[in-house]
């Protein structure tokens, strides 16, 4: 009987896969249903803006494109940090982890700016079913990104404590899976919510 510790890297597990990675993937499968529900809610309500601003009036595509690009590139830096750690390159691992967290923070900053702009233009959380659905969907995504930043910073702290070594690269890989998932959700949101022409008033 292999004990729990020995199997965590995949040795002696029934599938030959690491427990931790499998856990993260089951979680990501579950998250699909969460974001699916929020996105569907938005799609049902996107034309129900009442007297408030319509999505087609208010979306700033060039601005959102830039922040989408930032998030997309953070996926690259994330994978580079993992790749560095797998080579045993602690320094580059830290640099890319930090870059990823900063790009994520930049994205969140963009979202805060977007929200405040919308608020100024008369789109509050309670304005219409559309506004509630929009803020809820993008807000949930923003919370996911923020949690990802917290995880990245925790990894960074762990690295400076000297515990994030080549042998533990799986931890970075798992946080990376979460990060890339949040990125692909945004790829979906960006196209379906922003780029597909929205109703105007």
């Amino acid at each position: 009987m292999a004990d729990a510790a020995a199997v965590s890297h995949g040795h002696g597990t029934g599938t030959g896969l690491s427990n931790n990675k499998l856990l993260m993937w089951t979680f990501l499968g579950s998250e699909c249903l969460l974001f699916g529900g929020l996105i569907s809610t938005y799609l049902i309500y996107r034309s129900r803006f009442g007297d408030g601003p319509a999505p087609g009036d208010i979306f700033d595509i060039p601005f959102t494109s830039v922040s989408s690009f930032v998030l997309l590139m953070s996926s690259l830096t994330m994978v580079l940090s993992l790749s560095a750690l797998q080579r045993g390159d602690i320094r580059n691992n830290r640099i890319w982890l930090l870059t990823t967290a900063l790009l994520g923070a930049l994205f969140i900053g963009g979202q805060v700016y977007e929200f405040t702009t919308f608020l100024r233009e008369g789109l509050g959380y309670t304005t219409s079913p559309f506004s509630s659905a929009f803020f809820t969907l993008t807000g949930f995504h923003g919370v996911h990104v923020s949690l990802g930043i917290v995880m990245l910073m925790s990894l960074l702290i762990s690295s400076f404590r000297g515990t994030l070594t080549k042998e533990r690269s799986e931890t970075v890989e798992i946080v990376g899976l979460y990060w890339h998932f949040v990125d692909v959700v945004w790829i979906f949101i960006f196209t379906v919510i922003y780029l597909v022409p929205s109703p105007t008033s």
Binding site: L22, W25, C32
Partner: peptide, 12 residues
């Protein structure tokens, strides 16, 4: 492993 793909694609 294809197992991971299966979990993800099942959810999708």
């Amino acid at each position: 492993s294809p197992m991971f793909t299966k979990f993800f694609v099942a959810g999708l």
